[in-house]
Nucleic acid binder design. Structure first.
Lengths: 226, 226
DNA sequence: ATTTGGCATTTGGTATTCCATATCCCCTTG
DNA sequence: CAAGGGGATATGGAATACCAAATGCCAAAT
């Protein structure tokens, strides 16, 4: 029985995936929320098939999980934060080391001046803008590895970190100005052609970020791991 | 219309996935082979739905890909080998560094003697046994990171490398004895509690492996990247 | 009142049907 | 004979139907 025109605009699986992923990352669907295909099917106006495709993908990137057969939004805890930041400390310095190896002057200059443009003095802009700029910087560093597998792995990692950022906000913006100065420290070291210092500054920055996130998460009376 | 009892034994998606994945890794389905859901559906005796689930997973781990909408077994080339080994050089030393940090005597002894047992002198056993032992060694090192995300990433990486090993065999077994001695070098350094040397030996081992694989692959008149 | 058995509901998995698009082949036409 | 059109086929995507297992609830019995 055909209900109505199903509007085969594009891949409904991808549309559904992005809708659900966005809702999970923004914590509109909090950790532990059951993901019931029939409900989501009705809510998004598509059939169960693309929804189940999307849920499979969400499970693959660790945003959803199956607990005794039932799908639910994945939980996270302090140990996840440790893992996520360990991955960053592993991948991002690798980008800098590749830069040290190849030493492309143009790229060095690009990174050294990454925050020059659109960097107004005084209070930084809205949180979302700041997050986007932050992410662009770190993503650019990882891209220096030129390794597509590393980049994909990093992207999944970042998605999970971003979700915890959303979970912790508001209150988490407090570190914004601190992070900006840490970024500048990395960029200045790159500008001085001192990649050893840049690497150290980057790792310090990541360690500070991990510590902050763990502190906030522990305060929040950490929820259970999914 | 119900054809016959479909035997809902367990998750047919996983069964189908493992069947197809195995065939791809063993190169029974060579790179470029079209993966047609209806064909596989008939071949494996299940409907299209679990097959399509499996193909989605295969695409996620890089063993299959979609070229203009059609699924096919992913190809690979020298650049893939570089990426795959760069990932290994990134992850495996991280395991040793974690061991250096925590310095668990029991684990050190375990790794130092990893190849003592069942290591008969003279010619090594069958290639498959050797591969399994090799993989167990490196996997154990990566597991020292204690990072589940790293371990999953590494496992996917290994699956892809293993496929290329199968693709290159026979002839590729020639490096077996060489690899065994390189492994022993790593283990001996660990036994001497010299993790710096162990790290160096491990990286050298990986670089040798990459060079060998690239040589063999280049000889084989490299196929096109999927 | 508690426990237990069974039925209704929920939910995920699989099969089947329907549909859209792309590709290929043959036929027509200039 | 070549080029273009049109239908047949192949193939993937989505919707729906069907099924099994798990869950929960309610009633009945002790």
């Amino acid at each position: 029985m055909r209900a109505h025109g199903p509007l085969k605009t594009s891949r409904m699986s991808e549309t559904a995936y992005e809708a659900i992923e966005g809702a999970i990352v923004r914590c509109e669907l909090p950790p532990g929320t059951p993901l019931v295909d029939r409900q989501l099917s009705e809510a998004l106006g598509v059939s169960r098939t693309p929804i189940r495709d999307a849920m499979q993908s969400l499970e693959a990137v660790g945003l959803a999980m199956r607990v005794r057969g039932r799908y639910a939004v994945a939980g996270f805890d302090v140990e996840d934060v440790r893992e996520l930041y360990q991955v960053r400390r592993l991948l991002e310095p690798a980008g800098l080391e590749e830069l040290a190896r190849t030493w492309d002057e143009e790229t060095v200059d690009e990174l050294a001046g990454f925050f020059d443009e659109a960097q107004r003095p005084g209070p930084p802009g809205p949180y979302e803008d700041y997050l986007a700029r932050d992410h662009a910087f770190h993503k650019r560093i990882v891209s220096l590895t030129g390794n597509s597998r590393v980049k994909r792995f990093y992207a999944v990692n970042e998605k999970q970190i971003n979700r915890i950022r959303h979970y912790l906000a508001p209150g988490y913006e407090g570190r914004m100005t601190e992070v900006v100065s840490e970024h500048k420290e990395v960029c200045e070291a790159i500008g001085r052609r001192d990649l050893t210092a840049a690497r150290a500054a980057l790792i310090g920055h990541l360690e500070a970020g991990e510590a902050t996130m763990i502190t906030f998460l522990a305060q929040q009376q950490e929820p259970n791991e999914g």
